[in-house]
Amino acid sequence: MSEPAGEGDLTADSVSEAPASEGAAIEGAAIEGAVIEDSWRRLAGVTPARIALGRAGTGMPTREVLRFALAHAQARDAVHLPFESARMAGDIAALGFETLELTSAAPARDAYLRRPDLGRRLSEESRALLEARAGAPVDVALVVADGLSSTAIHAQAVPFLTAFKARIAEAGWSVGPVCVASQARVALGDEVGERLKASACVVLIGERPGLSSPDSLGLYLTFAPRAGRSDAERNCISNVRGEGLSHELAAFKLAWLLKEALARQLTGVSLKDESDLLLVGGRPPTARIGERDQSVTRRSFPAG
């Protein structure tokens, strides 16, 4: 709706009764001046922040309101789209991993969001499933958890695991079944890792979606996983996605941390990610299967 031209034109009737040609002229002028563009638009090139949007009166222009609404819709969908657990398990099995489908104690999304504690515990059925499967101890347990973004897992889990599989082969680690877990939070991996007798647990999880990053994957590494571990005892690699940290680089960093964790028998605040020192021109060295690189594991660290 265009604004009425003056006090005398406040009723809809008086507008509609205006001669057609005059009405069209008012409308045209109103639309032309409605959006005030910002003269500093070129600043927008140096930041992802939504600057220099222009304005319609005091509000955002229609195009910006819709652009924002779309980003919010994508972030909302990332939280609420059903997790395709069976499809993910199939895709991961096709990479050559054994898989298991697990559920947390949170029966549905609503309960998951209200009760973080339920998302950190296994359902009774999944506990039984793991008990039946547990075999010999392994170096690492892998958990693929929907977390707060099933979109992230759908998009990033397979390409990341493809990259990480090469690192596993290079290091010669034994892995348990890849556990695809629904309605899961990071700490669910503690119980999974413990039951699979794993020295360390890696949880791939959908991160809390941002407006410009609905599909971001987080990686959490915990040495000696067992129920009750605190977040200070984990290492985290965040923002794994197309526009963020690449799958290759994330796999390299995780492998570096895992090697250190197994060698030093710890994860958390006292294990700092220094894998950047090994990058060549910002890229990770290629995985060399069969040649175990001992130099990293044997590096000495200051005490503390």
Partner: peptide, 14 residues
């Protein structure tokens, strides 16, 4: 800017 905090990943007032 535009209600979208691109560092903290939440929405506030613009």
């Amino acid at each position: 800017p535009g209600s979208d905090d691109v560092m903290l990943n939440y929405q506030s007032t613009s």
